[in-house]
Simulated assay, not measured.
Amino acid sequence: MGAGAGAGTGDGAGDGRIAPPLTGGEREMLRAFLDFHRATLAMKCAGLTDEQLRLRSSPPSTLTLLGLVRHMAEVERTWFRRVIDGEDIPLVWSAEGDFQAAYDAHGADRAEAFAAWEAEVEHARRIEREAESLDVTGYQARWQAEVSLRLVMLHLIHEYARHNGHADFLREAIDGEVGA
């Protein structure tokens, strides 16, 4: 977070997000930063129509805000439910396991995408809260390795941070709105 981004206590930058604390335990800090990034993605999409959420960044890229929301639903589902909780469930938008399918938002709408994303976030929060510690592990098949809940939370923070940078540019191109 840069200056003016609400790096202390309170509601972020006056935009409804709760800024992560400046001190605290590891789990509290990871949880707060992950929730801050989740709120940032939602903020970047706020007030836009379905059509605006489907606007492509810059051809030939097919990246859209709605595609990012759908992608992050898959990311939350994969890392928390499939890896940490060991659930044998398909991806939300691809029974074949094609992670790229979520990015294709040409026929998608806000209600469906946000309902899926919000449901996966709630599952992720429940799994994290119920985990005995950050040392709980799950099997990440793509890496063929056991990974800890700690790594999963750090990975999700990284994933949101990267995609929130994309969301900044997408939103600015749509209506000139800047800031995070």
Rank of each mutant, 00 (worst) to 15 (best):
F33W: 15
K44D: 09
E51D: 15
D88R: 11
A101L: 07
E74D: 15
G47M: 08
I84P: 02
V69W: 12
D98N: 13
A111G: 01
E96S: 15
L55P: 00
S94A: 14
E120I: 01
F80Q: 00
R110K: 14
A105D: 13
G86L: 06
V136N: 01
G97W: 07
L68V: 12
T78E: 06
L30R: 07
V83R: 01
G67N: 08
E74H: 10
D109K: 05
D98S: 04
A95P: 03
S58F: 13
Q100R: 11
W79Y: 14
F99H: 07
R129L: 08
A101H: 07
R129C: 03
E87N: 08
G47H: 14
T64L: 15
G138I: 01
C45G: 08
M72S: 02
W117A: 04
R129A: 15
D98G: 04
A141P: 04
T64N: 12
P59Y: 04
H123W: 10
R81D: 04
A95R: 05
A131V: 02
W79R: 00
I84R: 01
T62P: 01
L30V: 06
A108W: 09
R126D: 05
L65W: 08
L91H: 05
F36C: 04
D85S: 04
E76N: 05
E112W: 02
R126S: 09
R125H: 08
T49F: 08
Y103V: 00
T64A: 12
D135N: 06
M29G: 07
S61A: 13
V75N: 09
A39E: 02
L34Y: 12
F114S: 04
A116K: 04
Q140M: 08
E26Q: 13
V69Y: 14
A32Y: 06
G138E: 02
Q52K: 10
D98Y: 05
L34T: 06
I84W: 09
R142P: 01
F36G: 02
E132Q: 07
S57N: 00
A115L: 06
D35L: 13
E28K: 01
T137W: 07
R27E: 06
D35R: 14
T137L: 01
G97N: 04
V136W: 01
R110P: 02
L41Q: 03
P60Y: 14
L30E: 13
R70Q: 15
Y139P: 00
E96K: 09
Y103C: 00
R54Y: 15
H106T: 15
R126A: 11
V75I: 14
L66H: 11
V136S: 00
A108L: 07
M29F: 12
S58H: 14
I127C: 01
L134W: 10
F99M: 12
V121N: 07
W117Q: 06
V75R: 00
A105R: 07
R125N: 09
E118K: 07
L68Q: 14
R126E: 08
L65K: 13
E74P: 10
A111H: 07
E76C: 14
D109H: 09
H71Q: 13
